[in-house]
Design a protein around this nucleic acid. Structure first.
Length: 695
RNA sequence: GGCUAGGUAGCUCAGUUGGUUAGAGCACGGCACUCAUAAUGCCGGGGUCGAGGGUUCGAAUCCCUCCCUAGCCA
């Protein structure tokens, strides 16, 4: 029975780069979605940029651009990062869109007409110079309880007290540095208390983790209070239709962005909107979020939907926070790792695997240990999983590239496929940590099987070559089953392996019922490469030296040091670093560590067994070097002989499959206009001599 | 400060309703093998289960106090 499932993860806020906190959530969601699709369900995955609120408005002002320009730039960055981690959205939208405006107005109007909206006056900090009301996080001063200096307007990080900005001593606006005054203003409130009975019922019906329910019980205990859903002008957002000068609070229209994104997908694919959003039985709605935004998604959101005449979520899946080497991500420690920083150094798939291997479906925090990351990926993916294929492929190739007609050990094959419903239930429950553990145990069994059979001995005896092929066929089939199981986590390896074994080999979860026999397979492709620990180490960057432009005065708001997955703009202040992901600033001393040299290409040839690599012999004047470079797609080797290139001469030698690479040839790379990714070799003007230093 | 979670081998984590000598992977030591990306297989060392107290014939597991970590307090 095919299910119809709509899935979202929290909207990234359009005010800063994606970091590992965003990525772990996107990976968890994407893995779940790919699993559902593999099982044959009709699963749709949408998300959107979260674009409104004071932080975006102020940030745009500081940069001298419009909010629209800011969010457009952010959307471009985010899309590139998500793509690098192979997050497969059916549609990615924006909350600053016609669809979102339409649905925000519709929900608001319905709620108002049903009497769920009320108005009352609120006293708030006001910056007279800037002419605006200040969110709590934009007021700083001394804690009223412990007198700690430079605390936010809502709580003290030193003693933990919570209060309002009016209680703060020596309060200062972080926007202008002036002293804020208190001013009254009318606001719109959503009467959450109207929905208490409904919510209590929904919480027991829906699939919430027990620990989340425990937290909710506390909130019910404290009593459900009205929710202020309006903000005063100036504000970047949607103006309230019947209250000129008032805007909807970003947190009101942000989740509605799930609906807006889906509405846009409907237009694209001709889907029936009402079927997905009006009915609670025909389709499923799943939200993946971090534990910090549980309140919004388990109380406000179902209440707004229900009051507005729409369906409530089937489930809200809450995950914990990400720590790096045991501590909160921190800019000063250099562990605030952005997605683009990672992607500059390493491919996305290993991190997908590592995150999946640690996510349990619970809300406990997940630790990214960099050493463990390298060890785990290299050992599990390369040493165990891919090893099964790469050690057996030669026996098939020697036997003419054909798999045997039958499996010599069908009992072992059965053992590999009989647990698949249990494995599926682990995916369903998002316990990919347990799933990976069990699959890796099977991988060990496969390697043990090959060790016991010793096909390399069979292969030496011409009379037994069929036996060797049979054993290899068995092992490759075991590998194929394991990769079907892991394909939601490892889409790239799966795609490469499909090119080797056949497109049908990984098409569905149940396809493993039929082993692959009697078929020709391709030449074995490199399915994965080991992570270089030196590159992993570079993920943690020491903070930039103060050569960077100083932050605007008084705007020393602390960056959201924790994964601000979701949209907490009014409580998390804007980071004031550069908009786009630039590598950290370095000093001239850092640059001097590079030994760049002009080198002449003496020889250049294609590398047997690799589509990408060229092997260079380079003349550096007093000696020669061998360097491998992955530019075969862009250059023919013969055209390079004799020309000068720029090389990094003091790069640590790296052992590759084809030999040692003793340096690196520098290229510019990127998409040429309208074209595919291309690389462009750097060269020096005529007259340069081999070995000349570049500085 | 209140609340919700977590604290188990060097590292990352499993430990189902309390029940025999607390498990796995990585790392480490030894051996084997050479088909495989210094990979694989076999064997081994290593833990007062955050601290202290209590309940029980029996506690990593239940109760109390304290310490540490993360989140929430709209």
């Amino acid at each position: 029975m095919s299910r119809q499932i709509l899935v979202t993860h929290a909207l990234p806020y359009a005010n800063g780069p994606l970091h590992f906190g965003h990525i772990i959530e996107a990976v968890q969601t994407d893995v779940w979605v790919r699993f559902q699709k593999l099982r044959g369900h009709h699963c749709l995955f949408v998300c959107a940029e979260d674009t409104h609120g004071t932080p975006i408005m102020i940030r745009a002002q500081q940069e001298g651009i419009t909010p629209e320009q800011l969010i457009a730039a952010s959307a471009t960055d985010h899309a590139r990062d998500y793509e690098g981690f192979m997050i497969g959205y059916d549609h990615f939208h924006s909350t600053h869109s016609a669809e979102n405006r339409e649905h925000t107005y519709a929900l608001y109007t319905t709620l108002r007409d049903k009497g769920h909206i009320t108005r009352r006056s609120v006293r708030q900090a006001y910056d007279e110079q800037a002419g605006m009301f200040l969110p709590d996080r934009y007021v700083r001063g001394n804690c009223p309880r412990c007198d700690a200096a430079d605390q936010y307007g809502d709580s003290c990080e030193v003693c933990g007290a919570t209060y309002s900005p009016a209680d703060l001593k020596n309060a200062v606006s972080t926007v202008t540095g002036t002293t804020p005054v208190l001013r009254d203003s009318d606001h719109l409130f959503f009467k959450l208390g109207d929905f208490e009975t409904m919510l209590r019922q929904w919480l027991t019906d829906s699939h919430l983790q027990e620990s989340v329910q425990a937290k909710l019980a506390e909130w019910f205990e404290a009593g459900l209070k009205d929710w202020d859903i309006s903000r005063d002008s100036p504000y970047f957002g949607f103006e309230v239709p019947d209250a000129p000068g008032k805007y909807f609070y970003v947190w009101f229209d942000a989740p509605i962005g799930y609906i807006g994104a889906f509405a846009a997908l409907c237009a694209k694919r001709g889907l029936d909107f009402d079927h997905w959003w009006k009915s609670e039985t025909a389709t499923e709605l799943h939200h993946f979020i971090g534990k910090d935004i549980s309140y919004f998604h388990t109380l406000f959101w179902p209440a707004v939907l229900h009051g507005g005449g729409l369906r409530r979520p089937t489930a809200v899946h809450v995950h914990g926070f990400l720590t790096v080497d045991g501590a909160k991500m921190s800019k000063s420690r250099g562990t605030f790792i952005t997605a683009s920083r990672y992607l500059q150094l390493l491919p996305g798939e290993p991190l997908r695997y590592y995150f999946a291997a640690k996510l349990t479906g619970g809300i406990e925090d997940i630790d990214l240990s960099l050493d463990d990351f390298t060890a785990r990926v290299n050992s599990d993916i390369v040493g165990k999983l891919v090893n099964i294929a790469s050690r057996c492929a030669p026996f098939i190739e020697r036997a003419g590239g054909h798999l045997a007609d039958t499996l010599p050990d069908s009992a072992l094959y059965t053992r590999f496929i009989e647990g698949r419903e249990h494995l599926a239930s682990l995916y369903e429950a998002r316990d990919t940590a347990a799933l990976v553990r069990e699959v890796m145990h099977l991988a060990d069994l496969a390697n043990q099987y090959v060790d016991q059979q010793k096909p390399w001995i069979m292969a030496k005896d011409p009379a037994r070559s069929d036996e060797a092929r049979a054993v290899a066929t068995q092992a490759i089939n075991l590998f194929r089953v394991l990769l079907v199981y892991l394909s939601p986590i490892l889409p790239r390896i799966t795609q490469t392996a499909a090119g080797w074994l056949g497109e049908d080999a990984f098409a569905s979860w149940d396809s493993v019922e039929t082993p692959l026999t009697s078929r020709a397979i391709g030449k074995y492709p490199q399915l994965a490469t080991r992570l270089d620990p030196a590159l992993v180490k570079q993920l943690v960057v020491s903070p930039a030296t103060p050569a960077a432009p100083p932050a605007p005065a008084k705007a020393t708001v602390k960056a959201a040091a924790t994964p601000a997955v979701g949209t907490p703009p009014a409580t998390k202040a804007a980071p004031v670093a550069a908009t786009h992901q630039e590598p950290a600033m370095i000093t001239i001393d850092d640059f001097a560590k590079l030994d760049l040299r002009a080198a002449r290409v003496l020889e250049c040839s294609r590398v047997e067994g690799s589509d990408k690599l060229l092997c260079f012999k380079l003349d550096l004047g007093d000696h020669q070097r061998q360097v491998f470079s992955g530019i075969a797609a862009s250059y023919a080797p013969e055209q390079l002989i004799g020309r000068f290139v720029v090389m990094v001469a003091n790069l640590a030698p790296r052992k590759m499959r084809f030999g040692i690479s003793e340096g690196m040839v520098l290229c510019a790379s990127g998409k040429a206009e309208g074209g595919p990714d291309t690389v462009f070799l750097l060269s020096a003007d005529s007259g340069v001599q081999p070995g000349m230093k570049i500085s």
